[in-house]
Amino acid sequence: MLRTERHARILEHVSAKGSVDVNELARLLAVSGATVRRDLQYLSDRKLLQRTHGGAVIGGISIEVPIQRRMERRRPEKQAIARAAAELVPPGAVVGLTGGTTTTEVARLLVGRGPVTIVTNAVNIAAEVVLHKGVTLVVIGGDARSESYELVGPIAEKTLADYHTDITFLGVDGISATHGCTTHDQLEAATDRAFVRSSGGIVVVADQSKIGKVTFAKICPLRDIQHLITDAGAPGDQLAAIADAGVTVTAV
């Protein structure tokens, strides 16, 4: 397992449980206690968690794991989600893509599906598709967020108000029947809402770790989205509740 993947799993685990100990993490990651302690110290030095005697705590806060640490997490599931998402895009469509690891996988598939226009605020997605023939790329400006590689804020929102996309794939940090779609950052949430307003259809692409989860900033209620694509490991009761709210749910 790559160090970046270990760090992502540690942060997700401690965020979900509130506190963990070294032995627990060593079993989870199948590594030595010494490796876990080095990982915890690395993450503590970057203020992503707080070290304790024999473990770490997060104080019950749902934290944002930087995107570079999430890239390899559940990648097969994200790729399966992306394949289902790409099937929804006809040649010649104008496609909105917000930032995220799963939307990045969608972008990688769209470049091989014939002519398409991609409108995105994610600089990593722009770098992935800019050299591909058949892709017309529109990058939304704004203030850069290093955690998500996204451009956000008033400039992004104003620009999106002048566009219309046929379909937008929305990355979220949480989606639930009670709180709708949420993310960690309020500026990112506002920019995501601008994508929602400018699109003819919203498809949320989210792996099982996002289902039933609620984070800090609300993007939109479930009534603003039409489709959720997730993986087969997502909790069935949460998916049923989302479907009952009128959202088409696909678990791949």
Rank of each mutant, 00 (worst) to 15 (best):
T4Y: 13
A8D: 01
I10H: 02
I10P: 04
I10E: 02
E12F: 15
E12M: 15
V14D: 03
V14K: 06
S19M: 11
S19E: 13
S19K: 12
S19Q: 11
D21A: 01
D21W: 03
V22E: 06
S32T: 15
S32L: 10
T35L: 05
V36P: 09
V36G: 10
R37T: 03
R38G: 08
D39T: 02
L40E: 06
Y42C: 14
S44Y: 05
D45L: 09
K47P: 10
L48F: 01
L48E: 00
L49W: 08
Q50M: 15
H53L: 11
H53C: 09
G54T: 06
G55H: 01
G55A: 02
I58H: 14
G59T: 00
G59D: 06
G60F: 08
I61G: 13
I61T: 15
S62F: 13
S62N: 15
V65E: 06
P66Y: 03
P66I: 09
P66R: 02
R69A: 14
R73P: 12
R74W: 14
P76N: 10
P76I: 03
E77A: 11
Q79H: 11
I81A: 01
A85C: 09
P90N: 14
P90I: 12
T98E: 02
T98I: 00
G99V: 11
T101N: 05
T103L: 03
E105W: 05
R108H: 04
R108P: 05
L110K: 02
V111L: 06
R113M: 00
R113A: 01
G114Y: 09
T120I: 05
N121F: 09
V123A: 00
V123D: 03
I125T: 10
A127G: 13
A127Y: 13
H132T: 14
G134Y: 07
V135T: 12
G142V: 09
G142E: 10
S146N: 06
E147G: 11
S148A: 04
L151W: 07
L151A: 08
V152M: 10
G153F: 02
P154W: 04
A156M: 07
L160V: 07
D162R: 15
Y163E: 10
Y163V: 12
H164C: 13
D166I: 06
L170V: 07
V172F: 08
G174F: 08
A177R: 03
A177P: 05
H179F: 07
C181A: 14
C181F: 06
T182N: 06
H184M: 07
D185C: 04
D185W: 07
Q186E: 14
T191P: 10
D192F: 13
D192N: 15
R193H: 09
F195V: 01
V196L: 02
R197Y: 10
S198V: 05
S199L: 04
S199G: 06
G200F: 08
G200P: 04
I202R: 02
V204E: 07
V205P: 03
V205H: 03
A206P: 04
I211G: 01
K213D: 13
K213E: 15
K213G: 12
T215D: 01
T215W: 01
T215C: 04
A217P: 02
K218L: 12
C220V: 04
R223C: 12
R223I: 10
H227K: 12
T230N: 08
A232Q: 11
A232H: 12
A234E: 00
A234W: 00
A234Y: 00
P235Y: 14
G236Q: 11
A240Y: 13
A245W: 12
G246D: 11
V249E: 09
A251Y: 11
